[in-house]
Computed example of a mutant assay.
Amino acid sequence: MIDLLILLAAAFGAGVLNTIAGGGTFLTFPALVMVGVPPVAANATSAVAVFPGYLAGALGFREELASYNRARLLRLSVVALAGAAVGSGLLLVSSNEAFSAVVPFLLLASTLAFLYGERIRAFAAARARGVTPEGAIGLFLVAVYGGYFNGGLGIVLLALFALWGMRDIHRMNGLKNGLSFVISLISVGIFAAAGLVAWPYAIAMMIAATLGGYAGAPLARRLPKQAVRGLIGLIGFGMSGVFLWRLIEGA
């Protein structure tokens, strides 16, 4: 019961964070590991837990998504699906030991991407080259990362879009949510088929994350942006340190 309460609290908090600014994975993944779920299964279960949020986000930006050429959206979705399938497949063949070895660095990279997302997007925008085959390769690589470990995926996608030359943040967010949903859809399907998902935990966390997302809407209008960024940074760096310590202790 204590384990379940920890997971429900983490999922609810993740729903709130994702609605306000993102970063919910920093709560769901460590909480699952804390209650004894093996790292690879914890990552898969965490992906399922936050999946409804991506669907809700995509629906919320349906007008922005509708503004894109359908053929272009289909091409981008196919590239994202292929990359996510590769990333999810890499997770399937990763041992818990190997995944645990890279988790601290994935968490750290995700935290830095979140905290410096504006600068990353500005840097990318200054070097915008437009959508080219090279851009498709970039999306494929980002989708591989998202299929393997989706922390900070949204920030990386926005930076990629800026590199493509996109400027309208609302259309960028629409495309980000749409492709995040596509990436999560194939990942969740692969993880479920492989039997990696701890379903009792996943279902309970999905419900809690959805409630947290609903509760996060009014908070998003009231909390100072810097306070939210500071909180997520604290959680991200803290979790990176905890997993690095676990790695060192187990060496």
Rank of each mutant, 00 (worst) to 15 (best):
G23M: 05
G60C: 08
F243V: 01
S100E: 10
L179A: 01
R129V: 12
R221A: 13
G15L: 10
V33M: 02
L196T: 07
L17Y: 02
L219G: 05
T132Q: 13
A220E: 13
R129T: 14
I232S: 00
G174S: 04
R62G: 07
L163E: 09
L55Y: 08
T25Q: 07
F61Y: 15
L65V: 13
V182C: 04
T111E: 02
A109W: 12
M205Y: 12
I169T: 14
V242K: 12
L4F: 11
F105S: 12
F191Q: 00
L112F: 14
L92I: 10
L7S: 04
Y148I: 08
V37H: 03
A209Q: 05
L141S: 07
L231P: 02
V103R: 00
G60L: 10
A31K: 02
A162K: 04
A101G: 08
F181M: 00
V93H: 07
A208C: 03
L153P: 02
L65M: 15
S94W: 11
T210K: 04
G87H: 08
T28A: 03
R221I: 10
L7D: 04
A128E: 13
T132C: 10
V78P: 06
A44F: 06
I183S: 01
A113K: 03
V182W: 01
A159P: 02
I155S: 05
S184G: 15
N150T: 08
V156A: 03
G23L: 03
L73S: 11
Y116L: 11
G241C: 04
M1T: 13
E63T: 15
L55K: 07
L247Y: 15
S88N: 07
L196M: 14
L231Y: 13
G24N: 02
A101S: 13
W199F: 13
L7K: 02
L4Y: 15
G13H: 04
G87P: 09
L55Q: 06
W199Y: 09
F29L: 14
W199D: 01
K176E: 00
G236D: 00
F29D: 06
A14N: 05
A41E: 15
A84T: 08
A125R: 13
A126I: 06
A159K: 01
G130F: 13
A109V: 14
V48M: 04
G233M: 05
R229N: 05
A136P: 08
A124Y: 12
K176Y: 01
L107M: 15
E249Y: 09
A49E: 02
Y148P: 02
F140L: 15
S95Q: 05
W245Q: 10
P133A: 06
P104Y: 08
S180P: 04
F51W: 15
I203P: 03
V33K: 05
W199G: 00
E64C: 08
A113D: 09
G212F: 07
I203Y: 10
F12K: 05
F51Q: 02
